[in-house]
Simulated scan of single mutants.
Amino acid sequence: MSHDEGYGGFAPGSHPSARAVAMRHAVLPSERQVIDLVLEHAEAAIEWTAQEVAERAGVGRTTVMRACQTLGYRGYPQLRVALAAELGASQSPQRGGGAAGLAAEAEAGARAGVRAGAAPVAGSALSEISADVAEAALALGSSTGMLDERSVELAVSAIAGAQRVLVVANGLSAVVASALSMRLTAHGRHAEFIADSLAQQIAARHLSGGDACIVVSGSGANDTSLGAAAAAAAAGASVIAITSFRASALTDAASLSLVIAPSGVTFRSELEHASRVSLMLFAEALVRAVSRATGDPARSARAQTLEVISEHLEEQ
């Protein structure tokens, strides 16, 4: 068994930073102190002992142990190994540890400029945009680290085989749900998205045991979306949560939870910008997985979709 496999329910190989983001809002303040300290000084923390971490964080050694277990590790030695693996996964050996290192690498990539053109001027709007895009790209690479194979397979099978699919979301996640439903429909797996919050709950309550309700919520705490999830569960439908945090009211209510690490490199970044980029990317990939599971009907549906699109294209 590897350092993290089979302990705490996390997907094997998921990085400590991704686990920390997914669990950030559900840990005790004292545990958060430990996690923040270790991730902020990742390279140094690999060499620390559990006692040294406790002294630096101003907590007891037992708190360090609990923090490690919250992230799915048996203890601090296993967390140290995972930190080393995450740092080693970077192509740049000069990158600093933790979120600061990721941000620095993203900024360096932005200042290097686009290969096809001139390098952006430092401090310009283009430089800042390039840095933000590079930073998000780095984070997206590990966004699926919280997923486990069994949950994904079950979710794909449930969506592909459902008699009826309802996609629910509110607030910033609504655009993800809308796109997901349209993409599923275009691939032959008809899915409904209803914008009105009351109508969502009514539609969810009218589902049955052979149906699936996909609830998209970055926070996993949107009251309106939770109401629809509860209504779908009461109707006997499979409730599939797509969210950014592992411990939430939504994951408690769902039959299956697909946790996608947010694209913000830090939890603060996710709160400030509330990006749904990682959820949107996952939604696209999920549609393709469902399409592959559906087989010939999906290929036929895509051909029909392209036929409709071609009829609306004008000569250029």
Rank of each mutant, 00 (worst) to 15 (best):
Q33V: 04
F282C: 05
L37I: 00
S225Q: 01
A118V: 12
V38F: 08
A231I: 08
G58T: 06
A303R: 12
A85D: 15
S157N: 14
G141V: 10
E315H: 09
S30H: 03
D211K: 07
A289Q: 10
Q91G: 13
P262T: 10
E153T: 14
D132W: 08
V59E: 11
I194F: 11
L126F: 06
S263Y: 06
I242K: 01
V53T: 06
Q51M: 15
E149W: 06
G101H: 03
L306D: 08
E47V: 00
D36V: 02
V38Q: 11
A57V: 07
L154M: 07
A118H: 13
A254R: 06
H273T: 15
S130T: 11
S238I: 13
S263I: 05
V156D: 09
A274V: 12
L102C: 10
Q200D: 06
A228F: 04
V167P: 06
A261F: 04
A179K: 15
G123I: 08
R111M: 07
V216N: 07
G6N: 02
L184A: 00
A235L: 03
M280H: 10
Q201L: 05
R164Y: 11
A22T: 10
M65D: 07
E192P: 00
A247V: 13
V176F: 13
S257F: 00
L286E: 02
S310H: 07
S300D: 13
E128I: 14
A231P: 10
S143C: 15
V290H: 02
S124C: 10
A232I: 01
A104W: 04
P93V: 07
R19H: 00
I214Q: 07
R288S: 08
G88H: 09
P12M: 09
V27R: 07
A230F: 06
A108Y: 05
G98W: 11
G264C: 08
L198G: 03
R56M: 11
L313A: 13
Q94S: 13
V27T: 10
V176Y: 14
R150M: 08
G145F: 01
S217W: 12
L286W: 02
A254N: 08
Q316C: 09
S291K: 01
L138K: 12
E5F: 04
A119E: 09
Q201S: 12
L37M: 02
Q78S: 09
E307D: 13
A139E: 14
I129C: 02
R95E: 13
A100D: 09
A134H: 04
E192N: 05
G58R: 05
